[in-house]
Amino acid sequence: MDGFDRQLVALAPRLRRHARGLTGDAAAADDLVQDTLERALRYRWRFRLRAGAWWGDGADGLLSWLLTMMHRLRINAYRRADLVTFADTLPDVPSAAPGPALGLDLARALAQLPEAQRAVMLLVGLEQFTYAEAAQVLGVPVGTVMSRLARARERMRELMDGGATPATAAHPGGPGLQRVK
């Protein structure tokens, strides 16, 4: 096993965690990670050509490259939706971790986000990518990443608070806007 293979093995748990957040389904996440790793092995020469230039050096550059492939594979799967289906909700599985209700609520809320917002939320919130790195992985402008993240955070707040927006929570039954003279 060479250094590239060792790096792939070392990054596999992060890829699986990210894929699980994207898909919301363990089996679909495993399939997505396997497809990503297979493609990485098949096209390893492309990473080596780009190392030091566009993708950066070492594990960080490799992770960005792998996540880019993962997101593109996921988009391609949506384009051929008649062949591949993904679950939109997480199954109710009891957790042994402390605070299982919060973790399950968080997972459900994340699963309810639109795909584009969920991808940005996972890259910036979970993987700790900068806006520029997330934009590079997703192939969108930085401003798009920022707006998707703002919408995702707001939607997560709404979902975690039981569906009430801050404006409707302050004025139940009333509009969220007020007229000020």
Rank of each mutant, 00 (worst) to 15 (best):
I75H: 14
D105N: 09
W45S: 11
R108S: 05
M70A: 12
D88H: 11
L37D: 06
L32K: 05
A53W: 02
G56T: 03
R6F: 05
L138A: 01
R74L: 15
F4K: 12
P172G: 00
H71G: 06
M156H: 04
L8F: 10
L83R: 06
R50D: 06
Y78K: 15
A40H: 06
A26R: 11
V33F: 05
Q7W: 00
E38I: 11
V140C: 13
G139C: 12
R14K: 04
Q7L: 12
A119I: 05
S64Q: 09
P100S: 10
W45A: 15
R151H: 12
L11G: 06
R16Y: 10
G173N: 01
H18C: 08
L8A: 02
F47W: 11
R50L: 13
R16T: 04
R179A: 13
P94L: 05
G176R: 02
R14M: 01
R148G: 06
L49C: 07
R153F: 07
A134H: 05
A97P: 11
R151I: 00
D30K: 01
L8H: 03
P91D: 07
A170F: 02
R6K: 14
R44Y: 13
T168L: 09
P166Y: 15
A96D: 09
H71M: 08
A97W: 12
R153K: 13
E158C: 08
A87P: 04
D57E: 15
A109R: 02
M156W: 02
V120Q: 00
P98D: 07
L104E: 11
Q117C: 06
Q128R: 08
L49Q: 03
D92W: 10
G103M: 08
T89W: 07
L126T: 11
A135W: 03
V120M: 03
Q178S: 11
T168M: 04
T144M: 08
D105W: 00
S95A: 06
L123E: 08
G3N: 12
A119R: 00
L126Q: 04
F129W: 02
D60H: 14
F4L: 06
S95L: 13
L73E: 12
Q117K: 13
T168P: 07
G162P: 09
D5C: 15
M121N: 04
M156S: 02
N76H: 13
L123M: 02
R151Q: 15
P172Q: 04
L83V: 10
L110D: 00
F129C: 01
A19G: 04
P100A: 08
L159D: 12
V140F: 10
R155F: 01
L138M: 12
R179H: 03
Q112Y: 14
E115T: 15
L49K: 03
L138C: 05
D25C: 10
L73R: 08
G174V: 00
G103T: 00
A150G: 03
D57M: 10
Q7K: 06
D5R: 07
L67F: 04
F4P: 05
L11Y: 08
G174S: 14
M70R: 13
G103K: 05
A111W: 00
F129R: 04
L63E: 12
R155P: 00
V180Y: 10
R148E: 09
V142C: 03
L90V: 12
A101D: 01
